[in-house]
Write a protein that binds this DNA or RNA. Structure first.
Lengths: 146, 146
DNA sequence: TATAATTAAGATAAAATAGTCTTTTATATT
DNA sequence: AATATAAAAGACTATTTTATCTTAATTATA
């Protein structure tokens, strides 16, 4: 698995928030129901995003979570790094310590190229970009297999 | 992590065998010592490769493991699929069930392209190709960080 | 101010992956 | 045939990831 489940869930929840009007708090219960993700697990993931400053939250009635910034300025890469860290984009695909230009693993050149493209592609996709094109491209954004 | 540790270890051990004369059995202890991989863990991984028909083994004195086929005809992809299965090359990067052309995740087109290239690249690298070029390209093939 | 709603926090459990240890089986050599 | 060597098999442990459950803290609203 390239991304952890926590990371996938975090991305889906962030896109859910991006599709709602900014400034409104959305309850985690609603998100977990609509996306078919475990409520408590999602709560923890969103706490991480909150600690990382990507979302804000409010307790109590009418509380919930909301993007901390404009959806234009948050990329999928931001979410991924907040949850899974930067290892995916730095590590040797064979897991060799010290793999690099001087002493490369047999996959080094190829994987370095691929992972950079992957990273650029994640970076190039803002939450707003995706949210705006859900209808046009019929994007699937839920764990529900409809 | 893109490949499991078991898979990385399996690849390194296979390359180790490929670099030795074919037909000779190499003890797992020697491989685990030289590559700095846990002996018992490696034994299990090599049992999988044995079950999958990629290597052969012999018990007793002078026993060990050896590639079942010519190193020319075994690709990294063969090893990966034997150990980790085909999920990496089939699954949605966001883990969405039913992600596909009709109802794609936002990363679908890009990732489908990348994972196919990754697969092709793994398929294109035979154990012999790599073994032959270790000196030329100064390949790192051990968990030891020298 | 009391109540209900909602996230935060922390304990626990389940599953997957990674790793270790012991015993059994096979085989080459003496 | 006896012995030593090495893989096979299986039980066990540890760690990480995923998931659940309970209680505490916060806050809007009646």
């Amino acid at each position: 698995m390239v991304l952890s489940k926590a990371c996938s869930y975090g991305i889906l929840a962030s896109l859910y928030m991006a599709r709602k009007k900014e400034g409104n708090y959305i309850s985690i219960r609603e998100i977990s129901n609509d996306l078919d993700i475990s409520f408590h697990f999602l709560t923890k993931i969103l706490q991480t995003l909150s600690e990382e400053g990507l979302i804000v939250s409010l307790r109590g009635p009418k509380g919930g979570v909301s993007l901390a910034k404009d959806a234009d300025s948050v990329s999928l890469l931001d979410i991924i790094i907040a949850i899974d860290g930067v290892d995916l984009f730095n590590e040797c695909i064979l897991g060799l310590p010290g793999c690099g230009h001087a002493k490369p693993c047999p996959m080094h050149d190829h994987w370095q190229n691929e992972r950079e493209k992957l990273k650029a592609n994640f970076d190039n996709k803002s939450l707003a970009d995706i949210a705006d094109k859900v209808e046009e491209f019929k994007y699937r954004l839920s764990m529900k297999d409809l």
